[in-house]
Design a protein around this nucleic acid. Sequence first.
DNA 1: ATTATAAATTGGTCTGACAATATTATATCT
DNA 2: AGATATAATATTGTCAGACCAATTTATAAT
Lengths: 236, 236
Amino acid sequence: MAIKKTSLVEIAAERMKQNIIENNLRPGDKFLSEKELIQQLEVSRTVVREALRSLSSIGIVEVRKGGGVYVGHSSFDSIRNILEHHHAVHGVKLRELADIRKVIELGAVRLIIENDLQIDRSCFEEINRSYHEAILAGKDTKKYDQQFHQQLMKETGNDTFYKFAEVIQEYFSLVKIDLVQSRDSLIKSYEEHEDIIAALVQKDLVRGHRLIAEHLEPVFTFIRQVEEARGDGTDQ
Amino acid sequence: MAIKKTSLVEIAAERMKQNIIENNLRPGDKFLSEKELIQQLEVSRTVVREALRSLSSIGIVEVRKGGGVYVGHSSFDSIRNILEHHHAVHGVKLRELADIRKVIELGAVRLIIENDLQIDRSCFEEINRSYHEAILAGKDTKKYDQQFHQQLMKETGNDTFYKFAEVIQEYFSLVKIDLVQSRDSLIKSYEEHEDIIAALVQKDLVRGHRLIAEHLEPVFTFIRQVEEARGDGTDQ
DNA sequence: ATTATAAATTGGTCTGACAATATTATATCT
DNA sequence: AGATATAATATTGTCAGACCAATTTATAAT
């Protein structure tokens, strides 16, 4: 037996979580108020408030001043917060991030093709067209490039995969990889997007993989340069 | 300008996080006590305590009764908690999990081989030997199988990847996939492990990928059966 | 120097109070 | 009756002070 000395706050928080599960409450639903929780759990307001604070910081509930307590919408937002601070404290190696990104994108391509999914071609092309226009206009292109890759994840039809990829993607974006891309290399990137779309449509896995690898190559080239320049390869 | 109405608790928590970053505090270091925080932030004890509760629930600090406040060790533990509740509330599709696992494991093999890493062969074989013994003795084999796959992630030398994989792995383990494995299929699984090790040593990417795919195939077979039986494919 | 005891520090919980905001009920006007 | 403005109520945010429980530190005894 574990001789756990659990605090009242932890017990209260646990019981609140159970309450949500047992009553099958959905995100946005109204939860019990502080007063009701005090009566139900038979603890002081201090304990109830700290338990609520604990749950709200991980996105399980949302507390609105004067408005009551509601069931939280996205736990993944809190994960982002956690990773953000984790990154601020520990930093992370550029190469590690790049490798993970490659794993995810190659995986996405494989999922789409092996599971024989029909991709939303027009959506891809719409995004890539905007990308092209931004390049020609000399505007900020990063947004559309990112959008393209997000769409790739989404097309796997695997929502869990997509959410994880999104979280990790944002973890990446904390790192400033300033690829000073020339207009030519941006055009090349745009064309590679087109090729990737084609490979997905043709369900050519080998080609898709090769194209993704090539497409990400500039990042690895950049990282090699940075690593040589300062040795360790961590950001900041 | 954003017209944010931030509560004192949130401000306090934010400043505490900043404090940790600016003073470059490492996990396990002693942080400020409640009293000191009250003086420094000039807020009531209530606010300090709620802010600390908020930070401790996402692993940024650890609070010990009578002992003071310390910088937290692992933010990833809190992510596990979050996902655990997320799963309890939303459930998850078996196929999605299986697909993600495959992406990760194939990715691990590719990372090891493409980055030309020397794996710790004896460690792998040690684990697999224990696996073999457990099979022969009719004991619980799950642990060693899991250990084998964890080791695969670790061998990528990519700590960030490993941590993410670990979190996701535990997310999987929330789902009961009761593959009723016969002794023969367990032996087969053991032999596949051996083959995978061999492929890693020989740095044969194509073979490594094929072996992983085959090795995970029983899971997909199981999932197809479940999906046919009840249609949707979610757990619980 | 080691150990046992006492004191001080620190976090955990409770109570009561008032402020700030949101919701609901009521009264008013058209 | 319906829309609107106002008042009453409910709910969360913050504060202060008190006492308990666990840990750490200081002190005394061996």
